[in-house]
Design a protein around this nucleic acid. Structure first.
Lengths: 176, 176
DNA sequence: TTGACATAGCGAACTTACTTAGGCAAATAT
DNA sequence: ATATTTGCCTAAGTAAGTTCGCTATGTCAA
C-alpha cells in the first residue's frame, strides 16, 4: 500500500523508498548528462540539439541504417519540423548533407560531411577527460549490468510514455 | 587511440563502441523518463518543472533538510529566478508554502501543503502501472547495482559539468 | 558602528527549444 | 482517376528557461 511500483525486486520489505530515491537519482543524472552534452556541443560551436542530431546521424550510419528527417525525429522524440529546421542550420554550417532518397523521393537522407566527422574527432580531446570524470568510478561488473539493462529500459520507456499519454487522454476526455 | 574514455573497465579490447552505445542509451532513456515525468505532472494539472519542484521539496523534506529557493535551483540545475517564478505559481495553486528562514531572513523556506501531499498520494494510482511498465523487467541483482551506482554518477556528473564549463570558458578566453 | 562586499530572492525582458497548423509533392490504396 | 496517407517544409506561436538589475539581509574588517 502506498508504493509506486509493484515489482517485488524493487521493494525493500514492501517499502519503495529505495526505488523512489533511485528514480530521483536517475532523473538527476539525466539533467547532468544533458548539461555535459550541451557543453560538448558548445565546444564545437553547436547547440545541444544540433550536437544530438549529429551524433544520432552518426549512430544510425554506424548501424548501417540510413537516416531520414523522420527517423531522427523519432529517435530524439521531437517533432519532424524541429529536425528540419535544425538540420538546415547544420547544412548551412557544412556539417550535414541532404539527399533525396531514390527509393522514396519524399524522404531526405542525411549524412555527416567530412568536416563534421573531423570536428567530432577533434572533440574527443575534450570528451576523454569529461567522460573519465563522469564514469571513472564504474568497474567492469557494474558496466556490464548497465550495458545490458539500458537498452531494455529505453524500449520499456517508450511503452511507459505511450501509457502515460493514454492515461492523460482518458483523463481529459472525462473532464471534457 | 580514438576512444572517448580511458577507463579500461569500459573498453572492450581497447574499443569504446559499447561505451558509446551505452551513453547513447542513457541519454535516450533520460528523454523518455522526462516525458513520463511531464506526463505525471500533467495528470496533476502541473507542468513538468512544477512537478519536479514538488518532488524535490518532498525529497529534501524526507532527508530532514530544509529547502530554500537556491537549494531547489542547485538540485535541479536551473536558475534561482526560474524557481522563484514557478514556486510562486505553485503557491498560488495552494501546493507550496513559503516562509522566511528565521536563521537567515534572506532565505525562503519551502514546504508542501497538505493539499500537495494529498495530490501526490492520489497520483500514485497512475504512477504504479507506469512504473511497472518502465521498470518491470529489472530484477533484484540489477536493481542493487543501479541503486548503488547512480548516487555516485550524480556526484561525478556534477564534477563533469563543472569540468566541461571550465573547458568552455578556457576556449572562449582563447578566442577573445 | 560603519562601510564594503557577498548572498538570497525577486521581477522584467529576453532567448532558446521546441510545438502546432497548414501546404505541397510524392507514394499508396480504392 | 481519385482519394488518402506520408514526408518534409515554412511560419507562427508557446513553454521553459536565461540574464540583468534591483532590494533586503547578512558578514567581515577596521
Amino acid at each position: 500500500m502506498g508504493t509506486t511500483t509493484t515489482n517485488p525486486a524493487l521493494l525493500d520489505d514492501g517499502d519503495d523508498h529505495q526505488f523512489r530515491q533511485f528514480i530521483y537519482d536517475v532523473l538527476a543524472f539525466g539533467t547532468r548528462l544533458e548539461a555535459v552534452r550541451d557543453g560538448l556541443g558548445a565546444l564545437m560551436g553547436l547547440t545541444g540539439p544540433q550536437y544530438s542530431i549529429l551524433i544520432t546521424i552518426r549512430m544510425l550510419e554506424q548501424k548501417g541504417s540510413r537516416a531520414s528527417i523522420g527517423d531522427i525525429a523519432d529517435y530524439m522524440h521531437v517533432s519532424g519540423a524541429f529536425v528540419t529546421s535544425e538540420v538546415n542550420k547544420l547544412k548551412k554550417a557544412g556539417l550535414v548533407a541532404k539527399a533525396t532518397d531514390p527509393d522514396d523521393r519524399r524522404r531526405v537522407l542525411l549524412t555527416l560531411t567530412e568536416a563534421a566527422e573531423q570536428r567530432l574527432i577533434d572533440l574527443t580531446e575534450y570528451q576523454v577527460p569529461v567522460n573519465d570524470t563522469l564514469f571513472g568510478s564504474l568497474n567492469r561488473e557494474q558496466f556490464d549490468v548497465l550495458r545490458s539493462v539500458f537498452p531494455v529500459l529505453v524500449v520499456d520507456g517508450d511503452s511507459a510514455v505511450r501509457e502515460v499519454n493514454y492515461l492523460l487522454k482518458k483523463q481529459s476526455n472525462m473532464a471534457g
